[in-house]
Amino acid sequence: MATRRGFIATLAAALTVPRLSWADAGDPAFLAAARQGEDFVLYGLGADGAARFHVPLPARGHAAAAHPTRPEAVAFARRPGTFALVIDCARGGIAHRLSPPEGRQFNGHGAFSADGARLYTSEVVAETSEGRLGIWDAAGNYARITDLPTGGIGPHELRRLPDGGLVVANGGIQTDPADRTKLNLATMRPNLAYLSPEGALDEVVELAPEYRQLSIRHLALGPDGATAFAMQWEGDPAEPVPLLGLHKRGAAARLCPPDEAEAWAMKGYAGSIAWAGARIALTSPPGGVVHVFDAQGGFERAIRRADVSGVAPLGDGLMVTDGTGAVSRIDSDGLAPLQRFDLAWDNHLVAL
Rank of each mutant, 00 (worst) to 15 (best):
E203H: 13
S328K: 12
T16P: 00
A12T: 13
T69F: 07
L243R: 12
I216L: 08
A47H: 06
L335D: 02
T324H: 08
D307F: 03
S21L: 05
A47W: 01
T16G: 07
P71I: 02
R305L: 15
A66Q: 08
E262V: 02
Q36F: 01
A12F: 14
E38P: 05
T69P: 03
T146L: 03
L352P: 01
H156G: 03
E262R: 12
Y142Q: 10
I303S: 13
R132V: 04
I145N: 05
G131T: 03
L31P: 10
R35D: 04
T321E: 11
G317Y: 03
A265M: 10
G131A: 08
H291L: 14
R19H: 09
I87C: 11
E210C: 07
T227M: 07
R144G: 02
A344M: 13
D316P: 00
L201R: 08
T10A: 15
A178D: 02
G110V: 04
G222D: 11
Q213C: 11
W345T: 10
G172M: 05
D342W: 03
V350R: 11
L166A: 04
D163H: 13
T128V: 07
G61I: 00
V308F: 11
I94H: 11
A33T: 15
P209D: 12
L133P: 02
H247I: 01
L192P: 10
L161A: 08
Q296S: 12
F53L: 09
L133Q: 01
A208W: 00
P58V: 00
S129Q: 04
L338A: 07
G268R: 14
T150E: 01
V17Q: 08
A50L: 09
Q213P: 10
A252K: 15
L246F: 06
H348C: 00
A34L: 05
V125R: 14
D259S: 15
A261R: 15
I216Q: 10
R78Q: 08
W264P: 00
S215W: 04
G225F: 00
I94L: 02
A295R: 14
A25G: 09
D39V: 00
P209E: 11
G108M: 01
D342R: 15
H156A: 01
F83E: 11
R305G: 12
L246Y: 04
T321M: 10
F53Y: 09
G172V: 05
T82M: 04
S284Y: 13
D236P: 10
H54L: 07
L207C: 09
